[in-house]
């Protein structure tokens, strides 16, 4: 075990994956010589050479399109989109190509690529450096979508994603790169070195895609969360003195339905939280799953706390962000219903 930030854990996952399989290539904007604007690929080019890790032109469609072609050749590209907000030019390549190649060719070709991207807000990034577009990917058949919340999982899941035979969209909440942000932006940052999930196993290990994790055990209510909101939900529960069970979904597709059902049947109450906009967000899918499978165990209507249906604001970031106050209030309301 080594104490790592999420950035170091992601870097280490690249190192391990590239070491064990020389078909793994890493590229994207600024990822080669510089090592990425968030430093997640730092040292890869130096260690593996510029035929394994290199810079690309500023063209997201080009990055993902080239990755699809490389995968057809037999490589396993792991590419970085500098911010999830920049992924839209590549959307056609992800949705119509990477996600569909295996199906439309009946397995003749496949696209085992990983598209990594920093997601979410809380860094004063304004509307073009703060979005959480996970629902745009979970709605697409043929894609796996992972959202990580801590260094331990980030390493294991990234290795699993690179080794996966299908395309994986890998979302890294940038606000938790350096510490488990609980939503209190006005308090000092807690570093990962002081958190148990900052302890990262050495060498190769992977976490199965499609498995959730119980982040905090509890009996009063279930919070379904992923990414930054896992830590916010934990803080809210502790501040409110509510014994909430916080499920870190980790993978949105395929979804760990059993983990959800088990927890909601136990607590009888369910709160769904995410940073992305409310309407047609992944939370709506979670509500449907809980309603379909746990209705007769529910003692109160399911509630959602999400980002507002506005562009992510710069000056009003903390009014937009579903912080511990909003989450805690929803918990109290849920328990009083």
């Amino acid at each position: 075990m080594t104490a790592m930030t999420m950035i170091e854990a992601i870097r280490d996952a690249h190192m391990v994956a590239m070491e064990s399989d020389d078909r793994v290539v890493v590229f994207g904007e600024d990822v080669g010589y510089f090592g990425g604007v968030f430093r997640c690929t730092q040292g890869l080019q130096e260690r593996f050479g510029d035929h394994r890790c290199f810079d690309s032109p500023i063209s997201e469609a080009g990055i993902v399109g080239a990755a699809v072609g490389m995968a057809a050749y037999g490589l396993r590209p792991c590419v970085e989109i500098q911010f999830a907000d920049y992924v839209y030019p590549a959307y056609d390549q992800i949705v119509s190509e990477a996600a569909r190649v295996r199906h439309r060719s009946a397995g003749d070709f496949s696209a085992p690529i990983v598209v990594r991207m920093p997601t979410g807000g809380g860094i004063f990034g304004g509307q073009t450096h703060s979005q959480s577009p996970e629902a745009l990917f979970t709605h697409v058949s043929g894609l796996k979508t992972v959202v990580v919340s801590n260094p331990h999982d980030a390493k294991g899941l990234l290795i699993a994603a690179i080794e996966d035979d299908d395309p994986v969209v890998f979302l890294e909440p940038k606000r938790v790169y350096n510490g488990p942000f609980d939503g209190h932006h006005d308090r000092p940052i807690v570093p990962w070195s002081k958190h148990p999930l900052g302890d990262v196993p050495d060498g190769h290990y992977s976490i199965e895609i499609g498995k959730a994790r119980v982040h905090r055990e509890g009996s009063d209510l279930t919070v379904l969360a992923y990414g930054t909101l896992v830590h916010v939900a934990q803080a809210a529960a502790e501040e409110q003195g509510i014994d909430a069970e916080v499920i870190d979904l980790r993978t949105l597709v395929p979804l760990d339905v059993d983990a959800i059902v088990e927890s909601v049947e136990k607590t009888g109450r369910c709160l769904v939280v995410h940073e992305a906009t409310l309407t047609s967000g992944f939370g709506a899918e979670l509500c449907a799953v809980v309603q379909e499978r746990c209705l007769f165990h529910l003692e109160a209507p399911i509630r959602r706390v999400c980002g507002w249906d506005t562009p992510y604001p710069h000056a009003h970031e903390w009014s937009y962000f579903p912080g511990p106050d909003r989450v805690g209030r929803a918990m109290r309301e849920l328990l009083s219903t």
Partner: peptide, 21 residues
């Protein structure tokens, strides 16, 4: 390569395939 109905997507994929080679 498997034909897409979406135009032009294959063009950059061909370049990627050639890069891989």
């Amino acid at each position: 390569f498997t034909i897409s109905g979406n135009l032009a997507t294959q063009y950059i994929q061909a370049v990627g395939w050639a890069m891989a080679s």
